[in-house]
């Protein structure tokens, strides 16, 4: 039935954490796998593979998205930011500082996605209220923290 399917490699050009990237990859690869396997950016995590947990959240063209629900081809021409790309000149991003300061991190598996959801929010809305923050991270499941210290960390971040 499914014999001799030839997969045509696709060429991609995009910026990743501010740097231009050009590469070839398989057409049935998810963005998540492109990041983790091809580019060795393992800060992006896989928790559910169906866009429910948010552990794989990255920023595509300023918007938070689930990288498990995108094919690599879809990012052609886009600007991608992953957790590895938000520190500036070796300094932690203010969100990262606050996640530490407010005790927002326990096991840490959801944290990259959580921080990126918050990052996308704050870049659009510098002073979000608590409800807005909760809505912005509702797609990022955390089983450890109960979210309270995460919300505090975001609320107290000044960009």
């Amino acid at each position: 039935m499914k014999k001799n399917k030839i997969l045509k490699k696709i060429k991609l050009r995009f910026t990743l954490n501010g740097e231009p990237v050009e590469l070839e990859t398989l057409p049935n690869k998810r963005l998540l796998d492109l990041l983790r396997d091809d580019l060795n950016l393992t800060g992006t995590k896989e928790g559910c593979s169906i866009g429910e947990c948010g552990a794989c959240t990255v920023i595509v063209n300023d918007k938070a998205v689930n990288s498990c629900l995108m094919l690599a081809g879809e990012i052609n021409g886009s600007a991608i930011i992953t957790i590895e790309g938000i520190s500036q000149n070796g300094n932690l991003h203010p969100l990262q500082e606050n996640f530490l300061k407010f005790g927002a991190v326990q096991c840490g598996f959801c944290i990259p996605g959580m921080i990126l959801s918050a990052y996308a929010l704050l870049n659009k809305n510098r002073r979000p209220d608590e409800e807005t923050i909760k809505e912005a991270i509702a797609g990022n499941l955390c089983r450890c923290t109960g979210y309270k210290q995460i919300i505090e960390a975001i609320k107290n971040t000044k960009l």
Binding site: G54, T57, N66, S117, E135, A136, G139
Partner: peptide
């Protein structure tokens, strides 16, 4: 609908 991430796509 879904989450922010879902609504963005």
């Amino acid at each position: 609908v879904g989450s922010v991430q879902i609504r963005n796509r």
